[in-house]
Structure formats: structure tokens, C-alpha cells
Design a protein around this nucleic acid. Structure first.
Lengths: 148, 148
DNA sequence: TTCTGTGTATGGCTGTCATCACACACCCGT
DNA sequence: ACGGGTGTGTGATGACAGCCATACACAGAA
């Protein structure tokens, strides 16, 4: 039913909260963690877990619904749409490259040597895998708002 | 005087434009590419180069000035502040980690294997170095707004 | 003075988010 | 069947931030 999600909101990033939520749901669907029919957190539940206003979640869910990715059912909850399309491999690549490029630009401007960049990325990837294992507890949705 | 800068604005990222500009100037100063006394692009010039409204650049410059990083002189232009502090190594690390973490989160949600992530990062880093060499032309400020 | 570069100031449109009050669907005890 | 409690999504309103368009003010050279 409800796969364990790991949503992360960075308030200081400047990126609208509803957009951060949308992207992450997209990625979960694209990666196959969320599958058609799966129930996702209720608006209130997610709002509480992430410490944001319910209206913000509403906006994200509404947009996702308009994109055909999820369905809201009054009084029942929200679900991944039956025909929710996973991102194509190409689209996944674009999304990933987008982040990678920003990192690269930043590193270049900071004049950080490439090997250092790579090692930091490795560390952060490793840190997440740790989280994933630790997360085999009765927590449905884990949240990190600030930094680790 | 005016070192060759390479500013990059991603309009679709959701991050406020003025914030993207601020960050990149910060990074250039932190990395030593921009040094105290250096003249930076005029408000109009930068606005034209990036295809944004001058007021947006004003906001970025005003904030940077308030942070003590640059100085605006009426009728003359904008310059890196005499006592502009480069970021400490620790602060640089924080900034870099921030981007790296976001990339890691995204990759994890997309279930992209780590080696793939690393290789993409390497590619993007490489692409930027290419740009840097190519940029030995009479262009003072090069801009990339969309994707490469 | 006049021209041309520079930074400055104001108002308006849009997007983002919070607050608060409302409406629908289910379940359970009566 | 009923009726209420609890969960769910919905909608109206207001405050504030980002961005743009436009007109104004200063500095230096012709």
C-alpha cells in the first residue's frame, strides 16, 4: 500500500515547497518505488509530517493530478494514477543531469578540484543508503527539513 | 579588471533569479576568481546578458552590497568590496555539500545506481572545463540560460 | 550643455504560502 | 436505520515575495 517514502524539503533553497514535493513524487514514480494504485499520504498527514501548511500540499497534489500522475478522491485519500507514466530513461537522465550540472557549475566557480567533488558526491550517496536501511521501522514517511 | 565570468541562470529551477546571481558571485569571490576592487558587470549590462529585468539585478546587487561583498557607486559601476571575505573552507564545503546532497536525494529516488551518478557528474564537470578554454575570446561575460 | 554611461525609485502583476471555515465519505455505537 | 465522530478534500481571503516596466537622478567626457 504505502511504500516508505523519504521526502526532503529544503526551505532555504528558494525552490517553492510545493514544487519540491512534486518533483520528489515524480521521481519516486519514475524510479518505481511508487506504483499505480498505491496510496500516498493524505494532505493533512503529509502537511503535518513536513511541517507545512495543508494548502501547500493541496497545491502540489492538484498539480500532480493535473499532470495525470495521481488521483485525489474526496474523503478517501490520494492515490497514484492507474496510468501513471514512469519517466522515460531519457527524461530521468535530463533530471539527473540538471542537478549534476548545477553542482558542476558551483564547484567550478568555487574552484574545487574535481576529485574532491566526486568524493563529496560519493559521501552523500552513501549517507542516503544508510538512511534507507535504518528506515525499516514503523515510520511511513520520514522527513528532513534542514541539513543532516 | 573584469575577469571572465560564466554566469548561468536556470529559469525553470524555481530558485529566484536574483538568488542564483548572488550565489554565483559569492562562489566566484570565494574561489578567488573575483578579487577586491574588481569591477563587475553594470546592472544594465548584466541584465541584458542574462535577459532579465534590470530591477532583478538591482535586487541581487543590493543584497550583495548589504552582505558587504560588493559596492555600488552611482554613475560609476559596481565593484567587489575591498574587504570582501572569501568563504572559509568550511563554508565552501557546506555550499558544495548542499548541491551534492540534493543530487544524491534525487538519484536515490530515481533509483539511479551510484556509478551512473558519478559518471554523469564527471561528464558535467568536463563540459565546464571545455567551456572555460573556449571562452578565451573577447567576451567579458558569457551566459547560459537554458540547457547545454 | 549635451550625450552616454551608470545607479535609483515607484507601482503593478503574478506566484507562493498561511489562516480559517466548509463539504464529502466512511465507520462505529446505538 | 440512525447519528455523530473522524478522516478526507475544497474553497475564499489576505500577506508577502519575485519580477517587470517605466521614469528619474548622478557622473564623467565631448
Amino acid at each position: 500500500m504505502s511504500p516508505k517514502l523519504h521526502l526532503q524539503i529544503d526551505e532555504r533553497s528558494g525552490v517553492p515547497v510545493y514544487r519540491q514535493m512534486m518533483d520528489q513524487f515524480k521521481y519516486y514514480v519514475a524510479g518505481g518505488t511508487l506504483r499505480p494504485g498505491d496510496q500516498i499520504p493524505s494532505i493533512r498527514e503529509l502537511a503535518a509530517a513536513l511541517s507545512v501548511n495543508p494548502t501547500t500540499v493541496v497545491k502540489a497534489y492538484t498539480e500532480l493530478e493535473r499532470a495525470g500522475l495521481i488521483e485525489k478522491r474526496h474523503g478517501k485519500g490520494a492515490f497514484v494514477a492507474p496510468n501513471a507514466q514512469a519517466l522515460t530513461a531519457a527524461e530521468q537522465d535530463v533530471a539527473l543531469r540538471r542537478s549534476a550540472k548545477q553542482l558542476a557549475v558551483e564547484a567550478t566557480q568555487l574552484q574545487v578540484p574535481s576529485p574532491k567533488v566526486i568524493s563529496v558526491v560519493r559521501e552523500e550517496l552513501g549517507a542516503l543508503y544508510v538512511d534507507r536501511t535504518v528506515e525499516d521501522l514503523p515510520v511511513k514517511f520520514a522527513v528532513v527539513s534542514g541539513d543532516s
